[in-house]
Structures are given as structure tokens and as C-alpha cells.
């Protein structure tokens, strides 16, 4: 069973710039994924305002009956989030690692336009490796 259902990256204005689904559960068509991305962007912003804690950086984890949603926001406002099986561990580390891949293979690529959808072969290859490694680690536990 796939532990990770899907991965999203949204730019600082809430546009979906990367979407990938793993396995059959929680698969969405393009329109739904765009909608979810911008919805999450607004919810995240509202949560920052509503939080009783001062200096809150927004929702990091949303737990539902059928899935967990882990979110990581970089300092520049780009958000990375994964939808995964409830109770999946170490997603924060995976998200940080994906952020690292993003800074290396997307931001250092001269042919990438900022805030635009990500189409970088090297990013795809390395991301697939990272998720694969994560899956192997999960099976081992």
C-alpha cells in the first residue's frame, strides 16, 4: 500500500506549480488538484490569522479520518504539502528534502521561470528517488 498519496507544490500566490500522485488512492483530475491547491493556500493564510499563538506560521499538519496532510512553507512562501496515509511518520523530513531538491534542481536551472509550473527532468528523477527511498524505509519499519 502506498503511504504517500500525492505531493503538491504551490507558489507564493497560491498557484499549483507541481502535482504528482502516487498510487490509486486520492487521485484527482487537473481541475480538482488546482482547486485543492488554492483552497489550501487560503486556508493556510486564514489559519495564520486565526491562531491564538502569536507568530504562527500556519497549519503544519491536518489530520482527517482517511488521510493526513503535512505542509511545509519555505521562507519565501512556497508551500510543499503531501497527502498521505493516516499516521505516516517522518513526513517533515521528506518535505524538507523535497525543498532541498527544489532549490537545487529547479531554482538553479536557468530554464525555469519563477512561479511557473515545474518541468525539470532532473527534479523529477531525484524526486522519484527520494520518494522511493522513503517507501523502502517505511517497509523496513
Amino acid at each position: 500500500m502506498a503511504a504517500i498519496y500525492s505531493l503538491y507544490i504551490i507558489n507564493k500566490s497560491g498557484g499549483l506549480i507541481f502535482y504528482k500522485d502516487y498510487g490509486s488512492a486520492g487521485r484527482m483530475d487537473t481541475n480538482d488538484s488546482l482547486r485543492l491547491a488554492s483552497l489550501w493556500h487560503s486556508m493556510h493564510a486564514i489559519s495564520q490569522q486565526l491562531s491564538p499563538v502569536s507568530g504562527c506560521s500556519g497549519i503544519e499538519l491536518l489530520q482527517a479520518d482517511t488521510f493526513d496532510l503535512h505542509c511545509f512553507q519555505s521562507l519565501t512562501g512556497t508551500k510543499f504539502f503531501v497527502v498521505c496515509e493516516p499516521g505516516t511518520l517522518h513526513m517533515e523530513n521528506l518535505l524538507k528534502h523535497i525543498y532541498e531538491l527544489y532549490t537545487d534542481y529547479v531554482l538553479k536551472n536557468p530554464f525555469y521561470e519563477m512561479e511557473m509550473p515545474i518541468r525539470c527532468e532532473l527534479f523529477d528523477i531525484n524526486l522519484a528517488q527520494a520518494v522511493q527511498k522513503d517507501r523502502v524505509a517505511l517497509l523496513g519499519r
Partner: peptide, 14 residues
């Protein structure tokens, strides 16, 4: 190392 050539640029190599 970090460069992916877009498909529409063909055989271009940095």
C-alpha cells in the same frame, strides 16, 4: 549538474 534542458530546445547543451 542542476540543469534540465527543456524539450523544445532540442540538442542544446550548456
Amino acid at each position: 549538474r542542476f540543469i534540465s534542458i527543456p524539450k523544445d530546445m532540442g540538442a542544446f547543451n550548456c
